[in-house]
Amino acid sequence: MTAQTETTRARHGGVAALRAIGWLSQACGLVASLMILASVLITCQMIFIRYVLGGSTIWQTEAVIYLMVGATMLGLPYVQYLRGHVNVDLVPLALPMAARRVLAAVVLCLSLAVLGVMFFHGFELWLMAWERGWRSETVWGVKLWIPYLALPVGFGLFILQLAADLAGVVLGVDRPFGVPDADAGEDA
């Protein structure tokens, strides 16, 4: 793996669509972090109610679970934007830049195909919950289409960021796998 001194981000090369998708991914990261903060605060409130006041809690555990799942799903495009997903760059480092670009395009296309299937099934689950009026089997009885919406939205935005990454590699404005070209002396 390469040592990086600064955060690697997706490059847009002045292409307005890629820049807009990058901003959207960053907004997703902000929303995901706020959801995590909300879940921490709700957990603290739940602990206070249960153990200090001796009361019972109804909605807190379920809300924290849904917020954390939602934050995970909405955080996907932001993590991809920052190149934070697992990346083993042994093979790309051994390849010349032209072959590295082809490999990146193949990997991104395969990733888009797999995520397309996940998006489809996530959308299907959300739609069933919406049409059938599913509710959780708890006292709170949340309408399940609300937390299930995180699946198609998260996967859809992740697909959008991956498509932007593919366009960046194809247009030559972004480095494949975020790895610099050693021959050109490019900085990480």
Results as ranks from 00 to 15, higher is better:
residue 2 T to P: 12
residue 3 A to K: 14
residue 4 Q to K: 14
residue 5 T to I: 05
residue 5 T to P: 06
residue 7 T to G: 02
residue 10 A to M: 06
residue 11 R to H: 01
residue 12 H to L: 07
residue 14 G to S: 06
residue 14 G to M: 04
residue 15 V to W: 15
residue 15 V to M: 13
residue 16 A to S: 14
residue 17 A to H: 07
residue 17 A to I: 13
residue 19 R to D: 08
residue 20 A to D: 07
residue 23 W to M: 09
residue 24 L to D: 06
residue 24 L to A: 06
residue 26 Q to G: 08
residue 30 L to M: 12
residue 31 V to P: 02
residue 33 S to R: 05
residue 33 S to M: 05
residue 35 M to S: 05
residue 37 L to N: 01
residue 37 L to I: 09
residue 37 L to R: 03
residue 39 S to E: 06
residue 41 L to G: 13
residue 42 I to G: 13
residue 43 T to R: 09
residue 44 C to R: 14
residue 45 Q to N: 05
residue 45 Q to R: 06
residue 45 Q to W: 15
residue 52 V to H: 14
residue 54 G to D: 10
residue 56 S to N: 15
residue 57 T to K: 11
residue 60 Q to P: 12
residue 63 A to Y: 09
residue 65 I to H: 07
residue 68 M to S: 10
residue 69 V to Q: 12
residue 69 V to C: 11
residue 71 A to V: 03
residue 71 A to S: 14
residue 71 A to C: 13
residue 73 M to S: 02
residue 74 L to G: 03
residue 78 Y to I: 03
residue 79 V to Y: 11
residue 82 L to S: 01
residue 82 L to R: 03
residue 85 H to Y: 12
residue 86 V to G: 12
residue 91 V to Q: 09
residue 95 L to H: 00
residue 97 M to Y: 06
residue 97 M to C: 01
residue 99 A to W: 13
residue 101 R to P: 01
residue 102 V to I: 12
residue 102 V to A: 07
residue 103 L to K: 08
residue 105 A to H: 06
residue 107 V to N: 03
residue 108 L to R: 13
residue 109 C to Q: 07
residue 110 L to W: 01
residue 111 S to V: 11
residue 115 L to I: 00
residue 117 V to E: 04
residue 118 M to R: 04
residue 118 M to V: 00
residue 121 H to M: 05
residue 122 G to N: 01
residue 129 A to Y: 14
residue 130 W to F: 15
residue 131 E to D: 10
residue 131 E to W: 02
residue 131 E to N: 14
residue 132 R to K: 15
residue 132 R to T: 14
residue 133 G to M: 05
residue 135 R to W: 03
residue 135 R to V: 10
residue 136 S to Q: 01
residue 136 S to G: 10
residue 137 E to S: 15
residue 138 T to P: 10
residue 139 V to A: 15
residue 140 W to L: 09
residue 142 V to Q: 14
residue 144 L to T: 07
residue 144 L to N: 05
residue 144 L to M: 13
residue 144 L to F: 04
residue 145 W to R: 04
residue 146 I to C: 02
residue 146 I to D: 00
residue 146 I to A: 00
residue 149 L to Q: 02
residue 149 L to I: 00
residue 153 V to P: 01
residue 153 V to N: 03
residue 157 L to M: 09
residue 158 F to E: 01
residue 160 L to N: 10
residue 164 A to P: 03
residue 165 D to Y: 07
residue 165 D to I: 09
residue 169 V to Y: 15
residue 171 L to D: 04
residue 175 R to C: 06
residue 176 P to V: 02
residue 176 P to R: 05
residue 180 P to L: 13
residue 182 A to R: 10
residue 184 A to N: 04
